[in-house]
Nucleic acid binder design. Structure first.
Length: 586
RNA sequence: GCGCCCGUAGCUCAGCUGGAUAGAGCGUCGGCCUCCGGAGCCGAAGGUCAGAGGUUCGAAUCCUCUCGGGCGCGCCA
């Protein structure tokens, strides 16, 4: 509808240009927007006010000329000039009746748009280190990323969801070493667990599995493990030096083959946990992309080589630096350390080079806001590689704080209380978690109120929306109990029966759905959809309270049911995009 | 110190690429079930859009500065 009106106004402007009433060289985009106030009609256009200066005419007068040049359109009932120079359009009731027919015809596909034109977009999200279970912060990235991806699908993009697995690097070595130490404990050893090791309960559990599988095959005496190591933090030493020496000792005593066995055991155990956690949360990926594979396939080396050949690297103090300042970064960055090892950043450059080479027209990275300082250097690297950094969109998700009983829950890993996504899901349920996470735009800090998310009451927006869906299902059950069926054909042909104000509100709200999908998708803002669904549910509940649907007269009854069933469809479609279920009863 | 994000009703937040009297939920106060599910509906009170300048027909929205809050500034990932 919006697009149709835009074309209409554009035609009128062109007519005026042809007639010499407007300059021929106007650069403008016709904007049609929904009116905030129904007294201003359904849609408004501000083009006359924008053009007034160039056309050297008063806005209202110009608006009047545009109106007289407008071609007729069947679904437009009235056009008028209002306020400072708005052109207001009032639609004919038939325009809204068509929406109901469209919904019934398209079903699950209603609201899908073609703006994406099948363009390939990659969405990378969560990508948490596989060194432990996901926590509630990752949950927000998961819910947000999944919703953005599904919105893009609905908007006609071809979406590739990806999880970047940091399965290389020091953190993973620390995990492997931690795991082995816990394994040794299961073998009966007593040892001083390093300050910088992973102390979580899950490491002990995985170690138990490892012990069950390997028996004592990987056992070495603790005394040999800890002999002649630099002291740990607790003993007045440096925890970093201690853990690094411990990692080296671990490899030495086990040999590479057994070390790798432990490393892979830990990696796959945690990755399996993350994968199933996300799956249960309704978050699935097209690909899990391994950091190690960048090395195995020579991609990391190739990226460095390209930068070197382009003259973007230089050597200083034994390390290789990337001239990111040349592309606006605040300082140059190390890509190859003094010890010859590539940095995480070097791998990330290679990963993003590979993303571009895979031919995505648009790449979206969803990161925690604490990584924001990282954006300029990645974009710099893309520029140096000859790619267009604008193809990469980095969406930064702010932190979520949990509240219970009005108190903020401390979220440090050490506190050990209620930090995992799994625990959150268990406490409030997947639906509430998905919906709450997506209720705020990503750059907004989020206060996640556990009591509210759990409450099965009027305060909880999730249940409010779901209840609308369940209520409609219940109405249909009532219909069946009365021995009646909905006459689809009569319902769709008797839509003119819908003359109540509440019906009009519901019709208008339904007609907005495709626009909401499109704008929410292009802006990467699933919260727009969440708010819309609340509005739609409210329009329905209000209608429900004001009028009975199961009335005696068949034409009116069937028309009302057509409207209500269309509402159910849109609720289900919208909730589906957000990963929330649409229950038939609750 | 520098950089990024945020500052709208008592609380939590919307406000679409600047648009016509600033919205919602919760909370507070007052109403509505012989009727399709009261997990619902209706109504009332409540804001100098942090502050100050600027841009223009028009600013919560764009620009600059100030104040306040969060986060980041590793040869960690």
């Amino acid at each position: 509808m919006k697009h149709a009106l835009e074309k209409l106004v554009a035609q009128a402007v062109t007519r005026l240009q042809d007639a010499g009433e407007l300059p021929a060289d106007l650069a403008l985009e016709i904007q049609i927007e929904r009116t905030r106030d129904r007294r201003h009609g359904d849609f408004a256009c501000n083009v006359a006010m924008i053009l007034a200066r160039q056309a050297r005419r008063a806005p209202r007068e110009l608006a009047q000329r545009i109106v007289s040049a407008l071609p007729a359109m069947e679904t437009v009932a009235a056009v008028e000039v209002a306020g400072p120079g708005f052109i207001n359009f009032r639609l004919a009731p038939s325009a809204y009746h068509q929406v109901v027919r469209d919904i019934h015809a398209a079903g699950e596909a209603f609201g899908r748009s073609t703006v994406g034109q099948g363009r390939r977009v990659q969405v990378e999200f969560v990508s948490a280190n596989p060194t432990g279970p996901l926590h509630v912060g990752h949950g927000r990235g998961a819910a947000y990323g999944a919703a953005v991806a599904d919105l893009l699908v609905a908007a006609g993009f071809q979406v590739h969801r990806e999880y970047y697995v940091n399965d290389a690097g020091r953190q993973m070595d620390i995990l492997a070493t931690s795991l082995w130490l816990r394994y040794l404990e299961h073998c009966g050893e007593t040892l001083p667990f390093p300050a910088n090791g992973y102390r979580g309960r899950y490491v002990i559990d995985i170690a138990a599995d490892l012990h069950a599988r390997e028996g004592r095959a990987l056992h070495r005496p603790a005394a040999r493990v800890f002999a002649d190591l630099p002291p740990d933090e607790g003993a007045g030493g440096d925890k970093e030096a201690h853990i690094d020496a411990l990692i080296a000792r671990c490899r030495e005593l086990l040999g590479e083959a057994d070390y790798e066995k432990i490393f892979d055991f830990g990696l796959s155990a945690i990755l399996d946990d993350i994968r199933s956690d996300l799956e249960e949360f309704g978050v699935v990926y097209e690909a899990w992309y391994s950091e190690r594979s960048l090395l195995e396939r020579g991609i990391a080396q190739r990226a460095i080589e390209r930068l070197k050949q382009g003259g973007f690297l230089y050597e200083r103090e034994g390390a290789w630096w990337f001239r990111s300042t040349q592309f606006g970064d605040e300082k140059d960055r190390v890509v190859i350390r003094e010890n010859g090892q590539a940095t995480y950043f070097a791998h990330d450059i290679a990963y993003h080079m590979d993303k571009m080479e895979r031919g995505f027209e648009r790449v979206i990275d969803i990161w925690g806001a604490d990584h924001h300082g990282y954006v300029p250097r990645i974009k710099a690297a893309l520029a140096a590689l000859g790619d267009d950094p604008r193809r990469l969109d980095v969406l930064l998700v702010q932190f979520a704080s949990l509240y219970r009983g009005g108190e903020k829950i401390p979220m440090s890993t050490r506190s050990g209380q209620f930090v995992t996504l799994r625990e959150l899901r268990r406490e409030v349920g997947n639906d509430a978690a998905r919906f709450f996470y997506v209720l705020r735009k990503c750059e907004q800090h989020m206060d996640f109120d556990l009591d509210l998310a759990k409450s099965q009451s009027t305060d909880n927006p999730v249940y409010y929306v779901q209840y609308a869906h369940a209520r409609i299902c219940s109405v249909m059950r009532q219909l069946a109990e009365q021995g009646l069926v909905w006459d689809r054909e009569q319902g769709l042909s008797e839509l003119r029966q819908l003359v109540e104000e509440h019906e009009e509100t519901l019709l208008v709200t339904l007609s907005r759905y495709p626009e909401v999908i499109e704008t929410a998708a292009l802006a990467h803002e699933p919260h727009q959809l969440a708010y819309y669904l609340r509005e739609l549910a409210q329009a329905f509940h209000t209608y429900y309270n004001a009028h009975a649907f199961l009335v005696e007269a068949p034409p009116l009854r069937n028309a009302r049911l057509a409207l209500v069933l269309a509402t159910r469809q849109v609720l289900a479609n919208g909730l589906g995009i957000l990963g929330v279920s649409a229950p038939e009863a609750m």
